[in-house]
Amino acid sequence: MAEAALKVQGTDVATPLLKVSNLEGWYGESHVLHGIDFEVRPGEVVTLLGRNGAGKTTTMKALMGILTKRKGSVVFDGHETIGLPARAIAKLGMGYVPEERGIFSSLSVEENLMLPPRVKPGGLSLDQIFELFPNIKERLSSQGTKLSGGEQQMLAIGRILRTGANLLLLDEPTEGLAPVIVQQIGATIARLKAEGFTIVLVEQNFHFASSVADRHYVVEQGKVIDTIQNAELEANIDKLHAYLGV
């Protein structure tokens, strides 16, 4: 995997691809992120776990620059991104798949797939995306919103893979999907990880998260309150239940 990571990123695996330090964020006057700290090395999959309203999605938006009122430090691929606009962050190779998927309803599946501009060399070709998500190929001429929830999620992930982004921010990719689709998404994330993609995953479903991630960061009230290595998950299961209130 490390070799694959080197192949994709062309960077040292020991150096974090993403390093978030003391990230704070605001919605208007509401202070919602109170100092998020975590890091992701090339080729890793990490998850942000936490209850509803803990600040997981807001963290994603702050990383991507969609949440504009923020401070702290986000170093991505050697670039400090905290002062950059969202489009410039995207151009550095950070690809965001939002919880609501963001499929454009007035465009066809093909147009949705081809819309995002290439940000870096190294994106998947259409054939490779169709191999990952065969359903998309069959629905190319359909309107984006005529797809099922699972197909929309596949399209949302597929179109980011085409851009060449090397860090994928996936916000609750399994939310509201049938178990069989969740399995397919899980298998896809595992394949992407094997290929060396670096992934930050927001999840509430830690059973799913544990099947794909290297490390879990527990977010509560806008802060990372604990870090659990996936290998240590079993030993920490009670603690995790307490954190997530399940």
Binding site: V8, L124, S125, Q128, T163, R191, L192
Partner: peptide
């Protein structure tokens, strides 16, 4: 594993396609 990452692609982004 068929999903090899390529540095080139035969598909142009939307802003460059006809």
């Amino acid at each position: 594993m068929a999903v090899d990452v390529q540095t080139t692609s035969n598909v142009a982004p939307v802003a460059q396609r006809g």
